[in-house]
């Protein structure tokens, strides 16, 4: 796009272009926005430390015993913020899946990927990529949660793996 804009300015003296389909004149915005969020994970830090050590941790309210996944600092039932960190059950049952063919540009380096939701044996559900051939996967099948390195981006993340 940047090259197109430069070319148009050179040619017409303005960043304008006629849309091919409609024939309507368009202004090509010069003020490109690069958006990247910086998100606080301070209060759920053990989750990320656990991930690095190959553990999947989440929060459990010390008072009412409610387990939260994703982990959160505050228990809305008790209105008390006193959580303990417990390990998630690593096995569960696949509930549903999809294969993403039309990807967001920020996932452009990956091949089509399978996103699934599983219900873990200790209760919580989890959304994650499902490893393996999606044509062989079916809701109701047993899956295991594993931690692995994302090949393209090199960071640790959990994924669902079919139990043979």
């Amino acid at each position: 796009m940047k090259e197109v804009i430069e070319k148009q300015i050179k040619e017409f003296g303005l960043p304008v272009m006629t849309d091919e389909k409609s024939g309507a004149l368009q202004w090509l915005d010069l003020r490109e926005l690069n958006l990247r969020y910086i998100i606080s994970i301070e209060n759920i830090k053990p989750f990320f430390e656990g991930l690095k050590e190959g553990k999947l941790l989440t929060t459990k309210c010390k008072h009412c015993g409610r387990i939260f996944f994703p982990p959160q600092r505050d228990c809305p039932s008790c209105r008390i913020s006193d959580m303990e960190w417990v390990e998630l059950s690593r096995e569960g049952t696949l509930e549903t899946l999809t294969v993403i063919f039309v990807k967001p540009p920020s996932f452009g380096s990956y091949d089509p990927y399978t996103v699934a939701i599983a219900k873990l044996d200790d209760g919580p559900r989890i959304t994650a990529w499902l490893k393996g051939d999606p044509r062989k996967a079916k809701p109701g099948m047993r899956v295991r949660l594993e931690i692995s390195k994302r090949e393209k981006e090199g960071y640790m993340m959990y994924e669902l793996v079919p139990v043979e």
Partner: peptide, 13 residues
């Protein structure tokens, strides 16, 4: 982390 798209959310359903 999982790149869900708008069609993806409904496709799960």
């Amino acid at each position: 982390n999982f790149g869900l798209t708008f069609p993806g959310y409904y496709a799960l359903h």
